[in-house]
Amino acid sequence: MADSIEEVKKAKKLYMFIGTLLFFFTVITVMVATVEWLDFGDHGFDGVDATIGLCIAAFKASLVMLIFMHLNHERPLIYFVYILGLVMAFFCMWLIGWSKSDPIQFGNETYSDGFYDLSKPATEVHGHGAKEN
């Protein structure tokens, strides 16, 4: 931990630098989304843009965590607690996503709760399990 006065003084320069980096990468993210020659993948928003955007965000987030939140030199207990939280949040997203993308299938037809046939009047739609296209 940056406890002694010299270390704190040194750290202040680092904080300044990290802050600038964060500004810089924010601008990059916006440019990827708005400037046409930086639009990777297909025209307009697509998976490639999403990946780039989220990678930059993850990089910025790890800078904040490591430097501002001092996770670059912290006690093992803190890592344990925080990583446990991240792991559980990951399980939450991963397993929910997985169970959603694995619907029951009968032959070639897929049944799930995601799509309701709106082209018919409400009274003709029979509850859930409408055919997904």
């Binding site: 559980m88 397993l95 997985w98 694995d102 029951i104 399990g129």
Partner: peptide, 21 residues
Amino acid sequence: SFIVWAHHMYLTGMGPVISTF
């Protein structure tokens, strides 16, 4: 206990792979 929850939901139309998990 964090990764068993969907056994409360076998009837909701989850597929066989995730049910097996």
